[in-house]
């Protein structure tokens, strides 16, 4: 439907058929265009995430003291030297907060990635095969999902021992069940397309069909889900740390920092700043979760094709 064809004769050429061709833009131009159209909430989310990443990456430079450095003064009040005071063992809370960003976010990202690799690939395989393999995987996932995941994780961590590697693997496997469900559902819509059949007729292997034909077409919902999953994993790790089976001391992480300093809340009537100390890592968790969700919401809105007008 272009308007340049008014005077065209009836001589038919295939190349001359009218179509709308989108202007070619470089990746950077596209990025800028997209960012310009982002709503304020998404901007807020992106700025917060960027700040967290900055802190996590440059933790050793930013922190005034070491992660596990012990000072003789336990439960020191807020001061110039110890900005947020010290904890029961005399470690600087502010420094541990900064190092905690690194540990908590790092482990959460690794876990979420692993969950997506496991759940995503099995989900696509189940959608392609649609036979006994689909049945076995789906029913196994149902069984895993039937058990409350926090209790299941607690149990597995007690059996295998609570260290960072086990933590990552166990939470990843438990979370992969949700990813599997989603991936299978969206991939089923793509698998029935003629181009997937065409690839099979060509004799392409499973790997190619998964990576090249299906994956690019199910990416948007998966990316959105990645953001959401990340939040849940993050909260699960914090919860497990709070319960004492997550990341082990002396490694700093926000969940266990809340637990270690929780007792300070009762002193609120004497020293408000002391009561705030356990709240700050909790607030850090909450803020990141909110920020990630803002960005995910925006992304979902963009890719779902829903428009306000």
């Amino acid at each position: 439907m272009s308007d340049s064809n008014n005077n065209q004769s009836t001589n038919y050429t295939a190349a001359g058929e009218v179509t709308l061709v989108k202007a070619r833009r470089s990746f950077l131009e596209n990025l800028i265009r997209t960012l310009k159209s982002a709503p304020p909430t998404a901007w807020f989310g992106m700025v917060v995430i960027a700040a967290y990443l900055f802190v996590a990456l440059f933790a050793p430079l930013l922190a005034p003291h070491g992660e596990a450095e012990v000072f003789p003064l336990a439960y020191a009040p807020w001061s110039d030297e110890f900005i947020l005071g010290t904890d029961a063992l005399g470690r600087d809370v502010f420094s541990r907060l900064i190092y905690g960003a690194r540990n908590t976010i790092g482990i959460a990202v690794a876990t979420t990635l692993l969950a997506f690799i496991i759940g995503g690939s099995l989900g696509v395989i189940a959608a392609i095969s649609r036979n006994w393999m689909d049945q076995v995987l789906s029913r196994f996932v149902d069984v895993l999902m039937a058990i409350p995941s926090l209790i299941f994780a607690l149990m597995l961590l007690s059996i295998f021992g609570a260290n960072a590697i086990n933590l990552i693997f166990i939470i990843a496997v438990l979370d992969a069940t949700r990813v599997f469900r989603l991936t299978r559902a969206v991939a089923l819509n793509v698998v029935v397309m003629d181009y997937v059949e065409a690839a099979r007729l060509r004799g392409e292997g499973l790997g190619w069909v998964m990576r090249k034909e299906i994956l690019p077409n199910i990416m948007p919902p998966l990316v959105a889900e990645f953001g959401l999953r990340f939040c849940f994993v993050f909260l699960t790790i914090a919860a497990l740390s709070f319960l004492g089976v997550g990341i082990q001391p002396p490694t700093a992480d926000w969940g266990s920092m809340v637990r270690e300093n929780a007792g300070l809340i009762q002193f609120a009537e004497y020293d408000l700043t002391a009561a705030l100390t356990p709240m700050i890592p909790a607030a850090a968790i909450a803020l990141l979760t909110v920020a990630v969700n803002f960005v995910v919401d925006w992304f979902l809105h963009k890719t779902s094709g829903l428009r306000d007008e």
């Binding site: 397309m193 003629d194 181009y195 065409a198 099979r200 007729l201 060509r202 004799g203 090249k212 034909e213 690019p216 077409n217």
Partner: peptide, 27 residues
């Protein structure tokens, strides 16, 4: 299909009714 050789697959090709769904929209 899975028992045919690559050579046999190559010799018979197919064109579909709906060209829209016969091509991966991301390729």
């Amino acid at each position: 299909l899975k028992n045919r050789t690559k050579e046999q697959l190559q010799r018979i090709q197919m064109i579909y009714q709906m060209a829209d769904t016969a091509m991966n929209p991301r390729h």
